[in-house]
Amino acid sequence: MMLHPTQELEPPANPERFNVGIALILTLDSLTPEMRAAFILRDAFDYGFEEIGLLVGKTPTACRQLVSRARHRLAGAKPADPPSSETDHPLVTAFWEASRQGDMDRLLALFAEDIEVHTDGGGRVKAAINVLNGSRNAARLFAGLARKRRFPAGPCPPLRWINGSPGLVSVEGGVLQTTALSIRRGRIEAIWIMRNPDKLKHLRLHM
């Protein structure tokens, strides 16, 4: 996912638009590479199934099925809860504290069972290559990082709005990063960690 962080101090003016877009992007990220490519080529660029087949190495019939499955999954994308400082700030703070303390039980209580963790280092700084799925895997990740002392201690940074989602701006191991949380029904269902310095240039100018 390509994030372009902002430092908005208030929730976005049109939270529903942001949340639907984030849900669709998250679902698009969850598609297989072949399914995602076939869907984009068909619905965004109006390629024929024979053309798509040549590009992805599949038969036209297989490409039609890939596009159909992608559309079905995207149609079921569920938007996150509308951003709210009053409800989101306690969850963001709780996540910060639990991740710094490596508290597995508390992290599991905060995470949705099917949570996804996305990271982007742009090949410039250390970051996970693949999307991490599942609450237990996500909790293990942050608990492990806490044990390695990669996280700074101290109070939770101020709440920021990043692409319409509540989150934080911090420096981890000397690297500037943003952490955006998608919250639904009081649980964190997705985390996007942006560490790619090329995508944070404008953010550095405001710090």
Rank of each mutant, 00 (worst) to 15 (best):
G123S: 14
P79W: 01
P82D: 03
P33K: 07
W192Y: 13
P197V: 03
V131T: 15
S165M: 14
I25L: 15
A112N: 06
G123D: 14
L54I: 12
D120S: 04
G186T: 06
E50W: 10
A153G: 12
R136N: 13
T87L: 05
G186F: 09
E8Y: 10
A127K: 12
R185W: 11
R42N: 11
A190W: 09
Y47E: 07
A98D: 04
G53D: 09
H89T: 05
R69A: 13
A44H: 12
S182W: 01
G173H: 02
G164C: 02
A153I: 01
T179E: 00
M207I: 10
K148Y: 02
N130Q: 14
T179R: 01
T27Y: 10
D103C: 01
D103W: 02
R185K: 12
A146Q: 00
V56H: 14
A44F: 09
E10C: 15
P152H: 01
I115F: 04
L200S: 09
T179P: 01
A109F: 12
L181E: 04
A112P: 07
G121C: 10
R136C: 10
A70R: 08
I193E: 02
Q65A: 12
E50S: 15
M35F: 06
G76C: 09
P12M: 06
T93H: 07
L159K: 02
V175S: 09
A98W: 00
A23P: 06
R73T: 04
N130F: 14
D198E: 11
L31Y: 06
A77E: 01
L66S: 06
L55I: 06
I115V: 14
G174R: 05
D105F: 03
A75S: 05
A23G: 08
A80K: 07
F49Q: 09
R71H: 04
L200C: 13
L3T: 15
R100D: 00
T93G: 00
F39P: 00
D103G: 03
P152D: 01
A94C: 08
A109G: 13
L132Q: 12
I191Q: 06
K78P: 02
V169D: 00
F49L: 08
D103K: 01
L55S: 05
H72L: 15
I188P: 04
A112H: 11
N163I: 08
D43Q: 14
P82S: 12
R100C: 00
N137A: 12
E86G: 05
P155K: 00
F151E: 01
H206E: 15
M207G: 10
R100K: 07
S85K: 10
C63W: 12
I183Y: 01
V56C: 08
V131Y: 05
L3Q: 14
H4C: 03
E50P: 06
R100E: 00
I162D: 04
W161R: 02
